[in-house]
Simulated assay, not measured.
Amino acid sequence: MGELPLSAIIPGDKLANMFSERVHSRQAQRQATQRVVLDAAEALFHAQGFKATTVRQIASRAGVSIGTVMAAGDKDRLLVSVMDQRIELMHQARMLPETGFLAMKAGNNAPEMVAALAHPFLALFAEDLDLAREYGAILIKGRHNSAVFGALAFQLTAEFEQAFKLFGLPREAAHRAATTAHLSYLGILLAWAGGAYDQQSALHQLKETVGALMGAEGK
């Protein structure tokens, strides 16, 4: 007598649930392993610098194989993931009611408000300027993309636009000014990372740009 198929022993819906639970368990395990790898990479990047850190050292600190580290990404990918996580946490904190955009409407003028919106990210990059520079260089090379940085660009531009509208620009003019201000912000950020500005000078330059945009649009 042949063996009964598994579906004849276990009802189909229960079998499907068992398979789904197993898949979810494996996904959770992979995510947990990736978390350990990223934590190890971040600790080493901060302790001894990006260039001095090797994949072998990351694997040793994480207690996994080199192959497991490489499954999470090469060293460049790991740095992008580490920085993306920090940016995402900062972004989420800014969206809380007590620290979000609406709570910042008390700014005296558009330049002050736009600078206040950009300041947390400049401060984040300033915590480890060498890592920020490496992060920027990786993104410029185009080998690894940052979904978080792309989402942040959209969000900041929208917030800049709200600031321009709040201080008197009509919608279309505010949109143009916000787009230009964000491009200027990115240029200032790269120049700052390259040593052309310190943090306060970068903020001052951004304020100057926003003030000029307000003037150009007739306000």
Score class of each variant (00 low, 15 high):
residue 5 P to T: 03
residue 73 G to L: 03
residue 40 A to P: 09
residue 181 A to T: 01
residue 145 N to D: 15
residue 33 T to C: 00
residue 194 G to V: 10
residue 8 A to Y: 02
residue 79 L to D: 09
residue 26 R to G: 14
residue 152 L to T: 10
residue 128 D to H: 14
residue 163 A to M: 07
residue 49 G to C: 09
residue 36 V to Q: 15
residue 193 A to L: 15
residue 151 A to N: 03
residue 141 K to E: 15
residue 197 Y to A: 02
residue 75 K to W: 03
residue 184 S to W: 05
residue 218 G to E: 06
residue 129 L to I: 13
residue 110 A to K: 14
residue 212 A to I: 08
residue 7 S to V: 12
residue 192 W to H: 02
residue 100 G to T: 04
residue 44 L to Y: 01
residue 106 A to T: 05
residue 96 L to T: 03
residue 142 G to P: 02
residue 130 D to C: 02
residue 32 A to I: 08
residue 78 L to T: 04
residue 71 A to H: 06
residue 25 S to D: 10
residue 58 I to Y: 00
residue 162 Q to S: 07
residue 139 L to E: 00
residue 46 H to T: 05
residue 26 R to E: 15
residue 175 H to Q: 14
residue 36 V to P: 01
residue 207 K to C: 06
residue 85 Q to G: 15
residue 91 H to L: 15
residue 158 A to R: 12
residue 134 E to T: 07
residue 103 A to N: 10
residue 123 A to R: 15
residue 145 N to P: 13
residue 117 L to H: 03
residue 19 F to W: 06
residue 99 T to A: 14
residue 64 V to I: 03
residue 159 E to G: 12
residue 134 E to G: 08
residue 22 R to K: 10
residue 158 A to F: 05
residue 100 G to V: 00
residue 213 L to Q: 10
residue 165 K to S: 12
residue 209 T to P: 04
residue 157 T to V: 04
residue 189 L to G: 13
residue 35 R to S: 14
residue 184 S to I: 10
residue 40 A to Y: 00
residue 185 Y to L: 08
residue 139 L to W: 02
residue 41 A to V: 00
residue 202 A to D: 01
residue 31 Q to E: 15
residue 67 G to Y: 01
residue 50 F to H: 06
residue 13 D to A: 12
residue 208 E to Q: 09
residue 180 T to W: 11
residue 71 A to Q: 14
residue 214 M to P: 06
residue 209 T to G: 05
residue 128 D to A: 04
residue 25 S to M: 14
residue 192 W to Y: 04
residue 150 G to I: 02
residue 98 E to C: 08
residue 120 P to Q: 11
residue 59 A to C: 00
residue 34 Q to T: 15
residue 109 N to Q: 04
residue 198 D to I: 04
residue 197 Y to N: 00
residue 9 I to L: 13
residue 201 S to V: 11
residue 9 I to G: 00
residue 85 Q to S: 13
residue 186 L to S: 08
residue 194 G to E: 01
residue 192 W to M: 04
residue 113 M to V: 01
residue 212 A to D: 09
residue 188 I to V: 08
residue 55 V to Q: 04
